[in-house]
Design a binder for these strands. Structure first.
Lengths: 246, 246
DNA sequence: CCATTCGTTTGATCTGCGTCAAAGCGCACT
DNA sequence: AGTGCGCTTTGACGCAGATCAAACGAATGG
């Protein structure tokens, strides 16, 4: 959780309000104010960012790495309710504590803003509040999309749906109209199971099945090669194009 | 979908920004502007409010009755992703179309605001934008709570979780510290199944089981009596107090 | 009054996934 | 090289919930 001075001045395109990429309407002095209250934190794989109920005095967005939001029942059953990948946002303006356990699953760099000045900024600059609302609506859509996965999809479809999420972040256009992708899974089988409402054994079995059927190829322990993204998305039972066109 | 003149002047405490109850900071002229762009619509049970992809030129909140947000796969599998009860909000500022099918499940009255003037209002009055963000965050929390239900709870726990949602809206304090509640189920068994990721048969069986075990009593077709709310919430596997204290 | 329809209940059977158990990898230490 | 540890894979078996099927009750309408 130490500061990383070498990052302190970096111009981070994945900042909470994505001020370079999206908030083009921001005035220069607004950007300056954002830069002033910004700092970076790093976490190691497995390290907690916050436990449910803890006070969180900052909001942040992921620069690199991945983190998970999970909920746990008293008897130990766990459900991941959010997956934070680069550019995703954490922290609730107007709420004192974290609602869920936030844990780094790989080495993680986050771009943070102290909560109090950030909220002041929100209250005075409509752009920021609007951008935050837009991001929250996106999260809500993602959560609802996932409700369909959890409630109605088979184990195989669930795995394919999860792989699609990662695959769609790194699409390569191959020859002959097939889109192939290669990426590293940031999650263990257990974490995948927690996300999908399955057990790790079922996850493992279905991964093997998808491999056997040629939908994916496993490269070492973490690497996954998807020769045909369309085939994967068909396996996921997804009617949409996965947002590739938007 | 006809206008209801008798409602047109009613002071609706469940309006989108809940301006009477919540937006106490609003100036009188802001309230007046809201009143000016407000109108009411009624729908009959079963009637669609909007299909996924349709343009929705208004945002609204539920005054009375209930509506559902559902997602459907090509093969017909359906998952409800949201349940709209009085005071709940529908419609996305900044988005052109509905993301999900919105259907009235009982007779429904909605308090609507034309989208364009509402968004103008949002852009100029920080209260409204903040209130909307707060409401969206609440929805997001509810969606994530529901992900735990869908992913990790047993059929019996799922039913109890759903019943808790309705029960907590109408709590009566009984004698001897037990809290008893009585309410009408606004959903059919099939709709409950769509919400819970189950089949209607399983829903029916588990309802019977809860009745047999004295957790609930069925009054006619739709009426449900919960003699002890704490017992129901224990069945739901809920560690929280259900927000009763907050 | 009966017939139709729509939602609900209940039963019998099947199956996908969970559970329990054991073995197979890398990979980091010593 | 050898040992231990964390993660993954694979197998055997059982069960919760799906599926298929039938009957029931209440409301509606001729």
């Amino acid at each position: 959780m130490q500061m990383t001075p070498d990052l302190a001045k970096q111009d981070c395109s994945a900042c909470p309000i994505r001020h370079r990429a999206v908030c083009a309407r921001c005035e220069p002095d607004e950007l300056t104010r954002l830069e002033e209250i910004k700092f970076y934190r790093t976490y190691e794989a497995g390290q907690p960012v916050a436990w449910a109920g803890d006070k969180m005095d900052f909001v942040a967005s992921v620069v690199s790495g991945a983190a998970t939001l999970t909920q746990t029942m008293e008897d130990g059953r766990r459900q991941m309710v959010g997956l934070l990948l680069p550019s995703d946002f954490v922290g609730r303006p107007g709420r004192s504590g974290a609602s869920y356990d936030v844990v780094a699953v790989t080495d993680l760099v986050m771009c943070c803003f102290r909560k109090v000045p950030f909220e002041q900024m929100m209250a005075t600059t409509p752009h920021v509040a609007e951008r935050l609302l837009e991001m929250t609506l996106d999260e809500l859509d993602a959560a609802r999309e996932w409700m369909l996965v959890l409630g109605r999809k088979t184990a195989r479809e669930k795995i394919a749906s999860l792989l699609s999420i990662f695959a769609r972040r790194d699409v390569l256009v191959g020859a002959a109209h097939t889109r192939s992708v290669e990426f590293d899974l940031p999650l263990t089988r257990e974490a995948m199971a927690d996300y999908l409402g399955l057990t790790l054994e079922t996850v493992s079995r279905q991964m093997s099945a998808l491999k056997r059927d040629g939908v994916i190829t496993l490269k070492g322990k973490r690497g996954v090669l998807v020769p045909d993204l369309d085939l994967l998305m068909e396996e996921a039972g997804d009617d949409s194009d996965g947002g590739m066109l938007s």
